[in-house]
């Protein structure tokens, strides 16, 4: 049986490079195109950064788990943490002109996730907070 494609690290910024490396290596083994691998790395990086910088505020950080679930037509990337849950809010898409001219706008992190992934969902249950990112192959 194949090994679980799962890696768990403390929610610290040095996990970002470890996660990107894990995705790159796994995609290579699975024969997934470099472009898709890159998009998964970017989406994971942005999502994990958000959790690391905000999700564990006020406590000694716990884990952040990255799991890849490859299927025949898509690959699912699951990021789980056990910190404070987030909630979705409707907001303006960021644009560089606005940022350059000091107009308030959110960052690019989540925007990149939506731009690179085919499906994005977020929920919290007894297993933790889950961000489920799906990319069609």
């Amino acid at each position: 049986m194949r090994d679980n494609l799962i890696i768990t690290r403390a929610a610290e910024l040095d996990a970002l490079a470890v996660f990107r490396g894990f995705i790159a290596q796994t995609c290579k083994q699975l024969g997934i195109a470099d472009d898709v691998s890159f998009q998964l790395q970017l989406a994971c990086d942005e999502a994990a950064t958000n959790v690391i910088q905000h999700g564990y505020e006020g406590m000694n950080p716990g884990s952040i788990m990255l799991e890849l679930q490859p299927g025949p037509k898509k690959i699912t990337m699951l990021l789980t943490d056990f910190g404070h849950p987030f909630e979705p809010v409707e907001t303006e898409a960021p644009d560089v002109d606005a940022l350059l001219n000091d107009r308030p706008t959110t960052g690019f992190g989540l925007y990149f996730i939506y731009q690179t992934m085919n499906d994005v969902s977020y929920f919290t249950d007894e297993r933790g907070n889950h961000l489920v990112l799906t990319k069609n192959l």
């Binding site: 970002l16 990107r20 790395q41 970017l42 990086d45 942005e46 950064t49 560089v96 940022l99 350059l100 960052g107 690019f108 992190g109 925007y111 990149f112």
Partner: peptide, 16 residues
Amino acid sequence: EYTSSAGLRVLLNAAK
């Protein structure tokens, strides 16, 4: 080889 939005933000602020 790679940048996330964190790198972009730094470049954007410097340009500004």
